[in-house]
Design a protein around this nucleic acid. Structure first.
Lengths: 241, 241
DNA sequence: CGAGGGTTTGAATTAGATCAACTCTCGTGG
DNA sequence: CCACGAGAGTTGATCTAATTCAAACCCTCG
């Protein structure tokens, strides 16, 4: 893991307007809250940024803060004693980090790109949640979605082949970046190593499989950070077995 | 995918006393509720049983009911088009089924042993939850725990070897059956096929690995449904990499 | 006693990992 | 401006853990 986090105080908007101006408010837990709830939330929030490669928090640390991601991509990962790691997910703008509500973070969160976030002190956030059932409902909704994703990923990791895993991954990324044109162009914010650690594969297998897909005209690889899905139907058939 | 569920109306205790007499109330979502909440919950509950091998619900079905398991073991699984399946978890007494709160069940639930449960119609349950924030909090707590378990399982499926998976599984089962004596005797309610589908392995690999553990005196196998953990420390070392 | 499920054990096969070499890109400094 | 080096990605050859295929084995139950 790289150097620790250094939270940069936000410049820009004056505090009272910040949440209302937030791009990701509707997708985030802040969405659908009454305006008094929103301002209560804003009162316990602080805004921050970290550079690519820096850590937001580390597995096993005391869980002092909960975060809503507003810009960038974050890698969530768990590690074994000997250094093998599994990425359990990638968080993107609007996602909430810290849903498990445990004393210690059960996974690490590292910035894959430059990242901006809203940070809530855990104790104050929990008090707030206790007083506002609407927030609790919203969190439960988020947790349910996460849980369904996690179960989908277990199916992938336990039973799918390398080709099926990559096909599933590309389709999931396309869906998240949802521009529903005929041939989606997916941007990969993370490198091959992170894709491998997410799919339970090695770098080499990821690279080989993508090359194979390109050879079969299922995708095109204009550069290492972009994938054009040329045959979504075939990819979907692969992904579902 | 055996015959469908047939809910047997509960005999036994008269309705008003049922929840108060329930063995699993403290572990289940029903625990820690005020007594008025408990009786509201009881009002929308019906009790049922199914035999081993029967299905409680199937992936993709409309999610009409949510359940609390009171006796027995349930297998939760997702399937690919060609029949490969991944078991995402085993539910035991006190566990709640249906946390994802989606319109359709995202996985199937099948009885591994004879099973008894409390069943709540989804709509009525959600109304109830809306009116009782304490229940919402309790559900969030359950969802957080499930999420942490799912992430742990992703690490297992993505990065652990067969030996490490089996060691982790045996320790987790021992913990769940928590009788903290020196050499825990674990009962396996499920067969080798289910263990394999849970750990992302084949029946043969499960069987071979257990035999190898027995050969190394890490465990003893008095019969196929029981495992005595003879060297917990070594198993733990294995499980953590 | 014999049939049938679940389990174990053995031999052959293979998907993906590992080890290794090479390429490409990009940023730095001579 | 170009040489250089570092990091990321690709490609190739080999190896291996786990799967697959196959054959017992061993209970339980009619």
């Amino acid at each position: 893991m790289r150097p620790a986090q250094r939270v940069v105080p936000a410049g820009g908007l004056p505090a009272p307007r910040r949440c209302l101006a937030c791009d990701v408010r509707e997708q985030a837990i802040c969405g659908g809250l009454a305006c008094c709830e929103l301002s209560a939330l804003q009162a316990v929030a602080s805004f921050g940024r970290v550079d690519r490669g820096q850590s937001l928090f580390t597995e096993g640390d005391a869980a002092a803060y909960l975060l809503t991601l507003t810009e960038g991509t974050v890698r969530l990962s768990k590690m074994l004693a000997d250094g093998r790691q599994q990425i359990t997910g990638f968080a993107m703008p609007g996602d909430f980090l810290g849903l498990a509500f445990r004393d210690r973070y059960p996974y690490s969160a590292d910035a894959v790109t430059p990242v901006a976030f809203c940070r809530f002190a855990r104790g104050r956030f929990e008090d707030l949640v206790e007083r506002h059932p609407a927030m609790e409902r919203r969190l439960l909704e988020f947790a349910g979605r996460e849980l369904a994703l996690a179960q989908e990923q277990m199916l992938l990791l336990g039973r799918k082949t390398a080709r099926e895993r990559l096909a599933s991954f590309l389709l999931a990324m396309a869906e998240r970046q949802a521009q529903d044109d005929g041939q989606p162009l997916v941007t990969l914010p993370m490198g091959r190593a992170d894709i491998g650690d997410y799919l339970g594969l090695t770098i080499e297998t990821v690279s080989r499989t993508l090359s194979a897909f390109a050879g079969e005209k299922l995708i095109a690889l204009p550069d290492t950070r972009h994938v054009a899905l040329r045959d979504v139907a075939a990819l979907r058939a692969l992904a579902e077995g």
